[in-house]
Design a protein around this nucleic acid. Structure first.
Length: 262
DNA sequence: CTTTATGTTGCGGG
DNA sequence: ACCCGCAACATAAA
């Protein structure tokens, strides 16, 4: 589930649930999601602290707690939910952070591909140093600079060190909207094509972030990618499914022409 | 049993 | 130096 818009949705969950509140209890149900920190350390360093802010960069979510920062990444199956204390525990609840309002934040994740990191506020910049600019706020000039590589455009858009926040679904959606074949090389897009790409990215992101998730819509690819015989919502041609940049890729061979060079 | 899944990283090879 | 595909990580569902 989690790409930039989903993580932005989690950020709002956090704001509503714990921002400004004091951490009363930290419960580590499955230490397998903790990185470089034990359950006891996590508890000791969060308990009693006030949550002073919540930030997102790409797919990373950062919870500030008076000098200590909890960094969360959701992998493919993670989510953040706000519960009342006493709500029944679910099978994949891994960590619970309860605050002084009878509410608790739960990090829920089936596959445990990523997890939680605990940092000192001074370590955050270094921690995110390898991340590219956030896809939601990147400037046109910086976007163009990031795309100036000899790589497949889909691989590049999904590369978090080039641009942070886009995953497999969003990337397909953006390329479809910009009418660009996913296997095109990024460095020989025309100025017009690169403009279309950035425009598509902005529109897709704006709509998805407003929803706090990547929506499944009839007028988007997302609403069709799991259909048995998926049709393009724009030209009604049959969509194709293949593997690009190591991931399942859905695109319209009529709307999104030729890889090669042009 | 096999395949697939919205992520990231590290490795081998071109 | 740059780029690609692929396996690995852990788990569930089709």
């Amino acid at each position: 589930m989690p790409e930039l818009p989903d993580v932005e949705g989690f950020r709002r969950v956090l704001v509503a649930c714990v921002e400004g509140r004091r951490v009363e209890r930290v419960e580590v149900i499955d230490p397998g999601v903790l990185h470089d920190v034990s359950g006891a350390q996590l508890r000791r360093r969060l308990k009693g602290r006030r949550v002073t802010g919540v930030r997102r960069h790409g797919k990373w979510l950062l919870l500030d707690a008076e000098g200590t920062v909890l960094a969360l990444h959701f992998g493919m199956t993670g989510e953040l939910v706000c519960c009342h204390t006493g709500d029944p525990r679910e099978r994949h609840d891994r960590v619970v952070i309860a605050v002084d309002t009878n509410r608790e934040l739960r990090y829920r994740d089936q596959r445990k591909l990523q997890g939680l990191w605990l940092l000192d506020a001074t370590e955050v910049d270094g921690f995110l140093a390898h991340q590219g600019p956030d896809a939601m706020t990147v400037s046109a000039a910086e976007f163009d600079r990031r795309l100036a590589r000899r790589r497949g455009v889909k691989a590049l858009l999904m590369d978090q060190s080039a641009l942070a926040g886009l995953g497999n679904l969003l990337t397909d959606e953006i390329l479809w909207r910009a009418r660009l074949h996913p296997a095109r090389r990024a460095d020989n897009l025309s100025d017009e094509e690169r403009g279309r790409l950035r425009d598509g990215m902005r529109r897709v992101l704006r709509a998805a972030v407003a929803d706090g998730r990547v929506p499944e819509r009839e007028t988007w690819l997302t609403g069709h990618r799991d259909d048995p015989r998926p049709r393009c919502p724009r030209c009604h041609g049959t969509l194709r499914r293949s593997r690009v940049a190591g991931r399942t890729t859905v695109w319209c061979p009529r709307c999104q022409r030729a890889p090669g060079s042009r």
